[in-house]
Simulated assay, not measured.
Amino acid sequence: MVTTQMIKIIYRLALVLITLLALLVAWYGVAFLEWNTTLGLLTLIATPLLWISQLLATRMVLEFLINQFKISEYLRVIKDKD
Results as ranks from 00 to 15, higher is better:
Met1Pro: 14
Val2Ile: 14
Val2Phe: 12
Thr3His: 03
Gln5Phe: 02
Met6Pro: 00
Met6His: 10
Met6Gln: 12
Met6Glu: 13
Ile7Gln: 03
Ile9Ser: 05
Tyr11Cys: 01
Arg12Lys: 13
Ala14Tyr: 02
Leu15Thr: 09
Leu15Asp: 08
Leu15Trp: 05
Val16Glu: 00
Val16Phe: 09
Val16Tyr: 01
Leu17Pro: 00
Ile18Val: 14
Thr19Pro: 00
Thr19Asp: 01
Leu20Glu: 04
Leu20Gly: 11
Leu23Pro: 02
Leu23Gln: 01
Leu24Gln: 06
Leu24Glu: 07
Leu24Cys: 04
Val25Leu: 06
Ala26Glu: 02
Ala26Val: 03
Trp27Asp: 07
Trp27Phe: 13
Tyr28Ser: 08
Tyr28His: 13
Tyr28Trp: 10
Gly29Ser: 09
Gly29Arg: 06
Val30Cys: 09
Ala31Asp: 02
Ala31Tyr: 03
Ala31Ile: 03
Leu33Ala: 06
Leu33Arg: 03
Leu33Ile: 15
Glu34Pro: 00
Trp35Lys: 15
Asn36Leu: 12
Thr37Gln: 07
Thr38Arg: 03
Leu39Phe: 11
Leu39Ser: 14
Gly40Ile: 06
Leu42Ile: 13
Leu42Trp: 09
Leu42Cys: 08
Thr43Asp: 05
Leu44Gly: 11
Ile45Thr: 13
Ile45Asn: 05
Ala46Leu: 15
Ala46Pro: 09
Thr47Gly: 07
Thr47Trp: 06
Thr47Glu: 10
Pro48Tyr: 10
Leu49Val: 15
Trp51Arg: 12
Ile52Trp: 11
Ile52Pro: 00
Ser53Cys: 03
Leu55His: 08
Leu55Met: 09
Leu56Tyr: 02
Leu56Thr: 01
Ala57Thr: 08
Ala57Asp: 04
Thr58Leu: 05
Thr58Pro: 02
Arg59Leu: 10
Arg59Glu: 12
Val61Asp: 04
Leu62Arg: 09
Glu63Ile: 02
Phe64Gly: 14
Ile66Glu: 11
Ile66Trp: 04
Asn67Gln: 11
Asn67Leu: 13
Asn67Phe: 10
Phe69His: 13
Phe69Val: 10
Phe69Gln: 10
Ile71His: 03
Ile71Phe: 02
Glu73Asp: 10
Glu73Ser: 10
Glu73Arg: 10
Glu73Tyr: 08
Glu73Gly: 04
Tyr74Glu: 15
Leu75Glu: 14
Leu75Gln: 10
Arg76Pro: 01
Arg76Val: 05
Arg76Glu: 03
Ile78Cys: 05
Lys79Ile: 04
Lys79Val: 01
Asp80Thr: 12
Lys81Phe: 09
Asp82Asn: 07
Asp82Lys: 00
